[in-house]
């Protein structure tokens, strides 16, 4: 009986030692596993965002089509038609800017920014981008952080200037919008203006979806690479086992 007990104790000690070896191996593999898990998590997150954004896009487009149909109903079918489209040489009033962005584990990725209502003649940005740039520049100045009474008047002056800038930008955006609407006549239905706003919102969503898609594809690449490495490792292991047998 004692011999049996001793044997069982020895085997327990051996199994503990084996467990310890496995743990050290796992610790060595952990950084790789964590990276893979992070990639998988990022990928699943972007897939979820992608699907949610597409739902939002479907709703916005539906609204736009409805308003376009209403405008067509009030203005007449012949007044909202592709036959009226401007086929003369002109550049897009709304365009995109493609930058590079470092996205953590995945590395450098292209990032698309929407440039709404940029002037076609000078190539100068009129829309939100210009206004945001100005705000960023002014908020970056250290003077705004001082809370002296003497600076308060300066700050008030600056905020009024900002409002003026915003009004100028708004005015120019309105001009660009009217210019696009003028394709379908000078007096257009308010529904057509609403349709224009809906499609502008859809455009913002589309840019977001495009960025999500890029993020999704790059994390998908990483996940795929990781799974291929694991599966090839498994294949090699299986082949070795086969040869041993």
């Amino acid at each position: 009986m004692k011999e049996v007990q001793n044997r069982s104790q020895d085997s327990e000690i051996e199994s503990e030692e084996e467990d310890g070896d496995e743990e050290t191996q796992q610790e060595q593999q952990n950084p790789q596993c964590q990276d893979q898990e992070l990639c998988l998590l990022q990928f699943l997150d972007s897939t979820d965002d992608y699907l949610n954004l597409l739902d939002a896009l479907s709703a916005t487009l539906r609204q736009g089509w409805f308003e376009l149909a209403s405008a067509r109903h009030s203005m007449g079918t012949s007044r909202i038609s592709t036959a009226l489209l401007d086929m003369k040489n002109h550049s897009a009033a709304t365009s995109l800017r493609v930058d590079e962005r470092d996205d953590g584990s995945v590395g450098m990725q292209p990032f698309i920014n929407l440039r709404k209502w940029t002037s076609s003649e000078g190539g100068d940005s009129l829309g939100e981008e210009k206004y945001n740039d100005k705000l960023q520049r002014e908020s970056g100045s250290p003077q705004l952080r001082q809370r002296n009474v003497s600076d308060l008047s300066d700050n008030l002056g600056k905020s009024s200037l900002k409002k003026e800038d915003a009004l100028i930008v708004d005015d120019q955006v309105q001009k660009e919008r009217s210019r696009t609407l003028s394709t379908f006549g000078t007096l257009v239905s308010p529904k057509l203006r609403l349709a224009q706003l809906s499609f502008e919102n859809a455009l913002e969503l589309i840019v977001e979806i495009a960025n999500k898609r890029i993020a999704m594809l790059s994390s998908f690449d990483e996940v795929k690479k990781g799974s291929e490495d694991t599966s090839s490792f498994k294949q090699v292991k299986e082949e070795l086992e086969d040869t041993k047998v």
Binding site: I80, L85, A92, S95, R115, L203, I206
Partner: peptide
């Protein structure tokens, strides 16, 4: 300055042209 292009039905294209993406 990059463009957005479309391959779609009439209403979708007209809508996005209203949003200013049209380029010739």
């Amino acid at each position: 300055s990059a463009l957005i292009s479309m391959i779609a039905d009439e209403d979708t294209v007209v809508g996005f042209l209203l949003a200013g993406v049209g380029n010739v």
